[in-house]
Design a protein around this nucleic acid. Structure first.
Length: 197
DNA sequence: ACATCGATCTACT
DNA sequence: GTAGATCGATGTA
């Protein structure tokens, strides 16, 4: 099976979480669903750190958040609001409970699967929210703990680079604590964001 | 055992 | 812009 680009190196994930949240912009999530390739570019992320009142790890380890304490480079999936899954990239060395939430992706390949998984929505809304993108990609609880290093589940560098001027930041969305920390990052002007800016 | 509330989404006004 | 859905994880007792 031919690779589309280079997989992110294991130490990509071991830097501080805010750095990784920015570095993930422009990287591509590649899933293989039987015969179909699903490919999408990360355009919006949020960092969740230790000692961060908005993070699931703020009060220490629990059954839900244990994946956040694993070595960086694996996937943390959780269920919320009785309906939605959210997908994170775990960061830092084992024992550090931090991760990056994927908030929006730009579709590149697999449009038919995305449309089938999210019937009736316009193409512009297929992947533009943390619960929407997991629905379109078919991410469920079973993906919790998967490493992004398998042929059917990868994070790739396809050379889509952005300068720091092209990256915007803002407070994180939908949280009730630590509302002022500017730990949401996005590609300025992308039509695929969950919000205009 | 129970009460609270959430890293959201959709539909409706 | 706002309301309601929906249910599992968590904290408290």
């Amino acid at each position: 099976m031919k690779s589309l680009g280079r997989n992110l190196a294991p130490n990509f994930y071991l830097r501080n979480t805010v750095t990784v949240a920015k570095a993930l912009l422009g990287k591509c999530l590649h899933l293989r669903h039987s015969d179909t390739s699903l490919l999408a570019e990360i355009v919006e992320t949020e960092a969740y750190c230790e000692n961060d009142p908005a993070s699931h790890t703020y009060r220490g380890p629990t059954p839900r958040n244990q994946m956040m304490y694993e070595e960086g480079g694996l996937c943390y999936v959780y269920f919320t609001y009785g309906s939605h899954f959210c997908m994170n990239v775990v960061t830092g060395k084992k024992g550090k409970g931090e991760a990056v939430l994927l908030r929006a992706l730009a579709p590149l390949e697999g449009w038919e699967v995305f449309r089938k998984n999210r019937p009736g929505v316009p193409d512009s809304s297929l992947l533009n929210g943390p619960g929407k993108l997991t629905q379109a990609l078919g991410i469920f609880r079973e993906h919790n703990g998967w490493r992004f290093d398998r042929p059917d589940f990868q994070l790739l560098d396809l050379g889509r680079d952005y300068s720091s001027r092209q990256i915007g930041s803002s407070p994180r969305i939908g949280i009730t604590k630590a509302k002022t920390r500017p730990w949401r990052f996005f590609i300025k002007g992308s039509p695929w964001l969950s919000r205009k800016s």
